Simulated scan of single mutants.
Amino acid sequence: MTSAVAPGLTAAWAVLPGGTVVDERAVDGLGVLTTSVLDLDADLPTLHAWCTARGTEFWGLQHLTADELRETYAFVDGLEHHHALLSRVDGVPVALVQVYEPAHDPVGEVYDVQPGDLGVHVLVGARPPGCERGFSQRLLLALVQVAAETTGATRIVGEPDARNTAMLRRAELLGAVLGPEVDLPTKRARLTFLPVRPPSP
């Protein structure tokens, strides 16, 4: 495994240019998983196709044009505590990952943020040809590990739409504990909390 981000410093991503690899690892049952800072120029067509596809209504971006989506992620790119990443398996784009510090996000106003908490959103956008059964769950587990190990997080916090029962089931399968339903600016959400081991020294 290689990492370009110092443990515990999520803000370090804010100064990395788009396309910078922040983690690369071989994952059993997946292949080589590479996670990079989102490159708005190179990745926008892929990102727009994913965000506007059927079944992504809970992501909340289906109505945006490509230019509007670019503006949305350009704003994210300018934030110090909220970062967009793109993950690939064997070079094929498979997921958008948004990582953020809950204390600097509206979710931090609806629960008691603990040291080591890290917020993570994942949109699985594609499956490589010939991928094995259970690909999405293995990918989610690997991405949680990437997020934790590259930041030093000890707990992953999720906030899926309360109606998104499929994602809530996936969170529980990963080992997350379901928390309360809360009102956020854009949705009624269900909090999830997944304890993770800190990286080895």
Rank of each mutant, 00 (worst) to 15 (best):
V110H: 02
G175V: 04
A42G: 11
P160C: 09
G119D: 09
E57M: 11
A142F: 04
V97M: 06
H63V: 01
R190C: 06
G130Y: 12
M1G: 15
V157G: 01
A189D: 01
D90W: 10
I156N: 02
E159I: 02
D43N: 00
A12F: 01
V99A: 10
A95P: 02
R54T: 14
T72R: 14
T192G: 11
F135T: 03
T165S: 15
I156Y: 01
T52R: 11
T65F: 08
T154P: 08
G125A: 06
V122I: 15
A142L: 05
H121V: 01
M1R: 07
D23W: 07
H83S: 13
G55E: 07
V120E: 00
L64I: 04
V196C: 06
G31N: 03
W50P: 03
R197T: 14
G19H: 05
G31L: 05
C131L: 01
Y100K: 05
A171M: 14
S136I: 13
L64D: 07
G130T: 10
K187H: 11
G18Q: 07
T154K: 07
H48D: 06
L64T: 11
A14T: 09
R197G: 11
E132F: 07
V144Q: 12
S136E: 15
E57D: 15
V177K: 13
V94P: 00
H63R: 11
D67T: 10
L184M: 02
E109I: 03
L40K: 00
G91D: 11
S87V: 07
P199G: 09
S87K: 01
V32E: 06
E24D: 08
V22T: 11
L174K: 00
V21I: 15
A49Y: 00
G19W: 00
V122S: 04
V124I: 15
H82T: 14
D117Y: 03
Y100F: 15
T10L: 15
L44H: 09
R188P: 01
H121E: 14
R88Q: 13
R54M: 11
T46G: 04
L47G: 01
R169L: 12
R197W: 07
V94W: 04
